[in-house]
Design a protein around this nucleic acid. Sequence first.
DNA 1: CCTAAAGTGTAACATGTGTGACACTCTTGT
DNA 2: ACAAGAGTGTCACACATGTTACACTTTAGG
Lengths: 233, 233
Amino acid sequence: MCDTLVIFAKKMFEALKDSPLFKGLEIADIDLLINNTLHQIKQFSNKEVLAYSGEKVEKAMILLEGKLHGEMVDFAGNSLKIEEMDPPQMVAAAFLYGPQSVFPVNLSAIADGKMLIIYKKDFTQLLSDDQRVLNNYLNIVSGKAQFLSRKITFLSFKTIKEKIAYYLLQNLRSGSQMVTMTQSQKGLAEMLGVARPSLARTISEMEADQLIRWERNQVEIINLKLLQIILGR
Amino acid sequence: MCDTLVIFAKKMFEALKDSPLFKGLEIADIDLLINNTLHQIKQFSNKEVLAYSGEKVEKAMILLEGKLHGEMVDFAGNSLKIEEMDPPQMVAAAFLYGPQSVFPVNLSAIADGKMLIIYKKDFTQLLSDDQRVLNNYLNIVSGKAQFLSRKITFLSFKTIKEKIAYYLLQNLRSGSQMVTMTQSQKGLAEMLGVARPSLARTISEMEADQLIRWERNQVEIINLKLLQIILGR
DNA sequence: CCTAAAGTGTAACATGTGTGACACTCTTGT
DNA sequence: ACAAGAGTGTCACACATGTTACACTTTAGG
């Protein structure tokens, strides 16, 4: 029993070593830091709701296994997918401090998993215990702000065509003319904040215009220049 | 000449004492910190563009006097006002670190003023020199992320009516039924990301429905319950 | 005090998007 | 291999919003 625990802990530290928060630290360092900190492991199962939008954020959460899904739901019931989170990432990192530290999204599991939980007070201690972790945390929070800023860019495009063009150009590796979709059209529609049939319709139009060829999860950019012109140069 | 400089510096430290970044510090502390740091003062005049979206953020900037205006401009030329900044606030705080530290907005002055500039390296030093400043900075960056998150909430509303209702309810002091507008309809339209005549039209409709009375920069909430129902319960 | 600039109310019209529906295809698990 | 579920293509229709235009009011500056 004790052995299993030790093995689990070892696996956890290995996972954490790859996390943005503990980047640059050795497993031994992490072990030391974590064991000086009150913490717990929370198991969760698929479809479980882990937090509701508006709830107070009182603990730092680091996803160890599984997959999470964050979405904003407005009062009319429309939902806007904000992001999906894979391990080993920190959850709600930018919402642990600040004047209004509440969850901005409904957080639910889309796969069984577990996460490491550290209460805010202990996490703050951890930040001042290790300069590297602090630095990493600063980068994470800034990164989140930048992510949200890009999200706003997206939402501020007025037409679906613009949104698609922007999305494709963002995900196009230079040199290639293929974009690999990491999600279904349904998922994409939720990300872009548009209705699914509207997205499909617009894609059809763009195909008819010889702009792109959309097949399964591979999209070929046929006319790159025209695509850029849609974005108004 | 030297006297004027000393007087200016004193005024600056007083201003900084009220800034979120130096909250809780004494003027003497700030004096010491700043004077151990390479810094400069930049003067700017009304309508001057201080930074373009996409430009690299290489220095920490703290607004001392004047007023700034940040807006996203998409390629088609549509602009979305993100925020207006008053002194003594830090500018682009959440974009100094992180994986992609570039300005998210076009930054321009809407009044003459000056700002304190500290290069990134020196600012980082400043953060580790004083625990309180670091803490303040963490709060600022988190606050920015939360601000952006709220902005997304706004943009994700589909109808203008919803946006107006949300805006009014956000700015309604409990107990009162008056909301004081801090900006013109034109400015509000830019914030909400809608066309100005569309906003005016919707306001007219809401007045016709006996929901609100919009006069100058005072808005009276006539039917609070109905307003909440527009937001879907 | 007067003028120019900025902001506001309103209209007719074009258009992009959401809705709800349906058939079809692909994926998944049993 | 099959069934059930999820995803996709497409349609007709309603409707909210953008556009452009113009008259009017308020504000700010000389």
